[in-house]
Simulated assay, not measured.
Amino acid sequence: MDFWRAIGVVLRRWYVALPALLLTLAGAYAVYTTVPPRYESTGVLSLTVPISGPSKLGDPRARIQETNPLLNFDSGLNMSASILVQILGSENVMTQLGASPYGQTTYEVNNGHPNPELLFSEPFVLIRGRSGDPESAKAIVSRVAQRAKVELTKRQKELKAPPTTYIVVTEILPPTNPIMLRTDRMRFTAAVLLLGMLAALASAFAAESIAAGLRRRRDEDGEPATRTAPASVDEPALQR
């Protein structure tokens, strides 16, 4: 019943709701055309064990093997991918690469799962770069991929791993050609449409409320005149 009552109010006050709706459509179009587009490029890195294996023979007389500490346990590659994700996703590294979490150019790094609890599942590093400029979106993915190789080599040097056992970082998906994202435009446009429709309904109900208030005031002003009319008719009879 309330729904049909609201429809009735809008139909009665169409001359208020219609201009508000037209202004909403104009505002939504303006937002859609003025919000700058965003572009996205993607790259994927894979971590693999070197052909020579995770160990090398040390002193033959002592029969000691030197092993890469990052590969000296199960899921070592997955752990290494997790370490890279944490390093590359830090704000300090992001700033050094010319990006910002809330800036024009930014990127996200994970191993295919946005849930941090699943970082140990796969030895992959997925890089997703975004920017208002298509070339910048592709360039940031390339910089992050190069930084991943540098960071992994640095960590293995710190652990004194034999160079022949270093984990191999392979670009299984080079930075893709940027594609334009429509999510930001559609989100802002939908927000303007929703707010505009609410404003149109509110204006229609406000006009209805004002009209009802004016009708009540006219009715109240007309009551005294109606009550005094019989007295004026009977007055000549009393004078007789």
Rank of each mutant, 00 (worst) to 15 (best):
F3C: 05
L84I: 09
A20K: 05
T170E: 15
A139T: 03
V9P: 00
I83K: 14
I127P: 03
L214G: 14
I140C: 03
Q239I: 09
P224L: 08
V125R: 00
E151Y: 06
S80L: 14
N78W: 05
V169W: 02
Y32C: 03
Q146M: 11
E135L: 13
R12N: 06
A199F: 15
A200H: 00
K154I: 08
G58T: 04
A225K: 07
Q104L: 06
A145C: 04
V9N: 00
A225T: 05
R128T: 13
A161Y: 02
V44P: 00
A137C: 10
T176H: 01
N78H: 11
V109R: 01
A17G: 02
Q86P: 05
E108N: 14
Q104Y: 07
Q156H: 09
A191Y: 12
P174T: 05
L181V: 08
E158V: 06
T164H: 05
L181P: 04
E122R: 15
A206Q: 09
L181I: 13
A211V: 08
I210G: 06
I179G: 07
P54T: 11
R185K: 14
R147V: 06
A148Q: 00
K157P: 01
G76A: 13
S52W: 04
P19M: 06
N78P: 02
L201M: 08
L18G: 08
M1W: 09
V150C: 01
D184S: 12
S100I: 08
M1D: 11
M197G: 12
I83V: 15
S82R: 13
V49S: 03
V109A: 04
P69M: 08
P230C: 04
D219I: 05
K154C: 05
F3L: 11
L70P: 00
T165I: 04
E40Q: 14
A206Y: 15
T105V: 06
R240W: 06
G103Y: 07
Q96E: 13
T105R: 07
R185F: 02
L238I: 12
L21F: 07
G222W: 09
T189K: 05
P116M: 12
N72T: 01
L119E: 15
W14G: 12
S142V: 10
K56P: 00
K157T: 11
L97Q: 06
G89D: 13
A229W: 09
R218M: 12
R216T: 14
D221Y: 10
E158F: 06
A199D: 02
T42W: 12
L126D: 02
P236D: 05
A81W: 01
G129N: 05
L21R: 00
I51N: 10
L25A: 15
S52G: 15
G76Y: 03
F3A: 12
V10A: 09
V233C: 04
